[in-house]
Simulated assay, not measured.
Amino acid sequence: MNGTAPMPLPAFVYDALPMRVVFGNGSLDRLPEEIDRLGLRRVLVLCTPEQQNLAGQAAELIGPRAAGTLAQARMHVPVETVADAAAEAERLDADGYLAVGGGSTIGLGKALALKFGAPVVAVPTTYAGSEMTPIWGLTENAQKRTGRDPAVLPRSVVYDPDLTLTLPPEVSATSGLNALAHAVEALYAPDGSPVIAAMAEQGVRDLAAALPALVADPRDRGARAAALQGAWLCGACLGATTMGLHHKLCHALGGTLDLPHAQTHAVVLPHVAAFNLPAAPQAEAALSRALDTDDPSAALAALADTVGAPRRLSQLGVSAADLPRIVEAVLANPYSNPRPVGRADLEQLLTGAL
């Protein structure tokens, strides 16, 4: 037989997470059967104040299974918010949580699952991807800490693209870039695998095509569905791999300075990609295919420009005086990354992002 021998594959471990996904337009109507499948009878419905109408619709759908609604979810999941929600869950004798909204609401559901062990059902309305991960995060005294626990992974996720049709273009753009960041980091994570690489590449491809289209026409149902599919794939990648410099920076910025989560990811992503990808050739090759480019970090920056996302930390209220605190926070705890990161690297990267 002629031809060259195939390249040897690296060893890997792939731990499949028990994800149940219900996807499609109108899938919200299937919520009662998902609640029944888990045997839940007293569900606490969670949302932000802005999502009360949709949460009310979800509560109405599940009828007497809804024990109450709590519209207090907040960005970065402050421990004070969790304490209030935990008291309400105990008062209602809740046996499960229905998180309707984006990463803030799903994060609150995870915090309650971590505390009480009761299951979460998620109905995502943004492209955050938190619903696909066993990662929880809590913020206390301006410090955000994260961890992994299979107990917080939502037991069922209902993806209904129709619920994203009213998501404003600017929120859609930053939420989608946040999801993209999950896949980018997964491609160079030390615990990646061929399965994760394939999901990450497709997720990036879906979002890169969908975001400009849905920003141009927010009612484009095809683009909305493609973006939600991409967010699902990218979120699943984040849930199965170790986070690196990008997420470390964003957690430090968000927790310390109370910055908006998705916008922070959108700003930081091209800068960290430019720093890391030269040390991660396989990740760079996958992103080059997904983005149809020879320069993935520049393509990510151009995509952010196209969809009107913020490009500078100064647009989020960060000043040069804030940067030393962020550098110290990132250096305080070790994390995996494809290339070493020192103080000078962080200072240069953050100054460039500022």
Rank of each mutant, 00 (worst) to 15 (best):
N2C: 11
A5V: 06
D15K: 10
P18E: 08
E33W: 02
E34M: 10
D36L: 08
L38K: 01
G39D: 09
R42Y: 05
P49M: 06
Q51V: 08
N53F: 11
L61D: 04
I62A: 09
R65S: 08
L70M: 07
A73L: 06
V82L: 15
A85P: 09
A87S: 12
E88Q: 15
E88W: 11
R91D: 14
L92M: 08
Y97F: 15
S104W: 07
I106A: 03
G107L: 00
L114P: 01
L114H: 13
K115F: 09
F116T: 13
F116R: 12
V121A: 07
V123H: 06
T126A: 03
E131L: 11
T133S: 14
T133I: 02
G137N: 05
L138Y: 09
L138Q: 13
N141H: 15
D149I: 06
S156A: 15
P161A: 05
L167K: 02
L167C: 05
P169V: 11
P169Q: 14
P169E: 09
G176P: 05
L177R: 03
E185W: 02
A189Y: 08
A198I: 04
A198Y: 07
A208P: 00
A213R: 15
V215H: 02
A216D: 14
D220Q: 10
R221E: 14
G222M: 03
R224S: 03
A226V: 04
A226R: 09
W232C: 01
C234T: 08
G235W: 01
A236T: 06
L238V: 07
G244W: 05
H246P: 03
H247Q: 03
H247G: 01
K248Q: 11
H251S: 13
A262G: 04
Q263E: 15
T264S: 13
V272G: 04
N276Y: 01
N276D: 14
A280C: 12
L300T: 02
D305I: 00
L313G: 03
L313Y: 00
L316T: 13
A320Y: 09
L323H: 00
E328Y: 10
A329G: 05
A332P: 00
Y335W: 06
R339S: 11
R343V: 12
A344L: 09
D345Q: 02
L346R: 00
L350W: 06
L350S: 11
G352L: 14
L354C: 14
